[in-house]
Simulated assay, not measured.
Amino acid sequence: MICLLKPFVVLSKSATVPRAAADLITQATSNSNTYVFAELLQTPQIQALAQSPDYSSHLKLLEIFSYGTYANYTSTTSLPSLNDAQALKLRQLSLLTLAKDPHNLSYAALQQSLSLPDSRAVENLIISAIYAGLVDAQLDPRNGLVRISSVSPLRDLAPGSIPSILNTLREWSGRCTSTLEDLEAQIANIKAAAAKRHADKKAFVEQTTKLAEEEKNAEQGIHTQRQGAILNRALTRIQGQRFGKRGSGSLDANADDDEAMEVDEEEPDDGEGGGSAGAALGGPGKKRANRRKL
């Protein structure tokens, strides 16, 4: 919006008398499209008003529009009166400054800071600032709060404010650095914990696999031993049966060899003499049995 101030900056070059410079200030602060005034404030013709007893208050008024608030206006005496457009604009610009602290954004606080008559006037001011593109905000009538999410950077810097702003920026940068370090440390811890979990899981899987292999090998060994025992018992039984049969045959053979069979044989008669002899030995016709082994 600085470009909208250009016409007033150009006109300031011809405002060689204090009255013309004061009128130019009134026109610039009443315009609905001008919200920054630093360039106009720095012109020689406007700064020359500080030497004018009658119009130096206009210079002070322009400074308040540039970087002050409505409370600064009401607390400073001998300032020019504000028309309706000037009063609305100064309240809108003051809202941008007050929005830096959320504690300033209650209906009661805004009503007091901006010299508004009631809560309805506060709501109307916020709505006008929203439509002007100065803030993004929501009204919360139930809790009596104005919730501002963003503001436009339309306030000028007050003299001597740069060192404090630099300190604020350094503090903010330090907090950002500390936060980033904390985040990096947390990320490192998370990565280390994830790596440890992965290693533990891998070791657990390897240990489980090893135990399973050992159990499997042990079962195979027991099975093999059982098979060997069964096979040995079967071989022993088979060999015992074979040896037993062979022993039985040998004993039977010996028994057959030792057993003698008795066979009765008849001897032929050798005649009467033989008969007489037989009779003399035991009677006629008697047979003599001879034993022999078969």
Rank of each mutant, 00 (worst) to 15 (best):
A260M: 01
P159I: 02
A218Q: 06
G144Y: 04
V146N: 10
V17W: 00
T224I: 03
K196V: 12
R226Q: 08
T76S: 05
Q92I: 02
E265V: 10
A260T: 00
V122N: 08
L5H: 04
L59Y: 13
L4N: 10
E215I: 15
P7C: 05
S150C: 00
G133H: 08
I190G: 08
D200C: 06
A15Q: 09
L82K: 07
I2A: 10
I165H: 07
T97L: 06
E214H: 12
Q186H: 13
V205F: 15
A158Y: 04
E259A: 06
D182G: 11
K60T: 05
G174W: 01
E214F: 14
A188T: 07
I238C: 03
T69G: 01
Q227A: 09
E171F: 07
I127D: 13
Q225K: 08
S150V: 00
Y73G: 01
R242K: 02
S57L: 06
L110V: 08
D252K: 14
Q27V: 01
A260Y: 00
L79W: 12
G174Q: 09
Q207C: 08
E171P: 01
R155Q: 12
N254M: 14
S178E: 15
L105D: 06
Q42C: 07
L41K: 08
E214Y: 12
E219I: 04
R147Y: 01
I190S: 15
E214V: 15
L169E: 07
